[in-house]
């Protein structure tokens, strides 16, 4: 072995050591295969224009956890989208961005993105590839110019090689490829291994208790119009009676400009809901009990209130205390431990 080879091997070993935590298993190509769970509908993401590859996924993962996206390199995507809480910001009503500035709305979970028809509480972004631009440019989140991020990436000592591997044929890193790499990582964030999933797919480990089953039946009868399909959202925008005045945040209206949309927010998925308090766009409720109490007795009547929450002149959804507990028991079966702890999705 000549000196060059020795140095090379040493360098390689150092790099390997530096880039992997002790418990970080070596990721093999099969690990980044995107599959559609059998209880899910067809995805909406256009994979033909951005197929997931091992190197693209690894790059996206590194980018997701890199504060390079923020103006002063203080905040990464992963800071407010934490794996434990299905990539939402647990215990934070709104998240703190650059200089500790607070955002306007509760950071949404990043899960099952490949099925979404729009993004953010107001649905202002229709394509996953465009999602990061919003957080990068928001003055209270990362407050950075995307073109600057691309410049920083091009100047970095690690990224040019990673991009070249993930997107061969390019001499410089492009903004489009930066976004595509992030999409590859986010598209892999599929949560479909909760106890409920095993139950509904007839797999082992899919046993639900009597209370959980009763909760599921109640959920189907009373909640599943909005929290529809096994994505647990119909992806519509609705006013769920959360506030009596939307002056401070008109949400969907701010995107569409249609007066009927004042106070309408995207229906969130309920997957991993146990892990994602506080709840609602404004983080108003700390517990699932408080959420169900809202639906039984806290709904505020405003012009855009969803008609489902005011049937026969009656506000809210009638539920007994036992029914509430059963629904909560069912909701907890949507917790996907393997998703939150998947080593492939952690900080590299």
């Amino acid at each position: 072995m000549n000196t060059f080879n020795k140095i090379f091997c040493l360098l390689f070993a150092v790099l390997l050591f530096a880039s992997c935590k002790k418990d970080d298993p070596v990721v093999v190509p099969e690990d980044v295969k995107f599959t559609v769970p059998s209880n899910f509908p067809a995805p909406t993401y256009s994979f033909s224009s951005n197929e997931i590859t091992q190197s693209g996924f690894e790059l996206g993962r590194r980018l997701f956890y890199d504060p390079i996206f923020s103006r002063d390199s203080s905040i990464s995507c992963g800071d407010c989208h934490i794996s434990y809480s299905a990539f939402s910001h647990v215990d934070h009503i709104t998240s703190h961005g650059i200089n500790g500035l607070l955002g306007k709305r509760n950071a949404p979970a990043v899960q099952n993105m490949a099925w979404r028809t729009s993004f953010f509480w107001d649905g202002g972004v229709p394509l996953l590839d465009l999602v990061p631009l919003n957080a990068i440019q928001n003055p209270v989140e990362m407050d950075e110019v995307p073109a600057n991020v691309v410049r920083k990436l091009n100047r970095s000592s690690v990224y040019p090689a990673m991009f070249k591997k993930a997107f061969p044929g390019l001499d410089t890193i492009s903004g489009a490829d930066m976004l595509k790499a992030l999409s590859q990582f986010m598209n892999m964030l599929v949560s479909a291994n909760s106890r409920y999933d095993h139950y509904v797919r007839g797999e082992s480990g899919g046993t639900l208790s009597a209370d959980e089953l009763a909760g599921l039946a109640l959920f189907k009868a009373k909640c599943s119009t909005c929290h529809a399909t096994d994505l647990f959202t119909d992806q519509s925008f609705r006013n769920n009676g959360i506030l009596s005045d939307f002056t401070l945040d008109k949400c969907r209206y701010e995107v569409s400009t249609f007066p009927d949309d004042i106070g309408k927010f995207a229906v969130p998925s309920l997957r991993n809901v146990e892990r994602t308090p506080p709840y609602m766009h404004n983080g108003k409720f700390k517990t699932l009990e408080a959420v169900l109490n809202h639906y039984t007795s806290g709904v505020k009547d405003t012009p855009s209130l969803d008609p489902l929450l005011k049937q026969n002149g009656q506000l809210g959804i009638p539920l007994t205390d036992i029914e509430k507990q059963q629904i909560i028991a069912f909701l907890k079966t949507l917790t996907d431990e393997s998703f939150s702890t998947d080593p492939r999705f952690q900080h590299p």
Binding site: S46, D129, N134, G175
Partner: peptide, 27 residues
């Protein structure tokens, strides 16, 4: 306006800011 990002070059490239002619929050 809704085409994949790599089909938007030059003045249309949202990742390059589209010359300040782009809204990221309301794509």
């Amino acid at each position: 306006s809704v085409s994949p990002v790599d089909q938007r070059k030059g003045v249309l490239d949202p990742a390059a800011g589209a010359s300040g002619m782009y809204w990221a929050w309301n794509s």
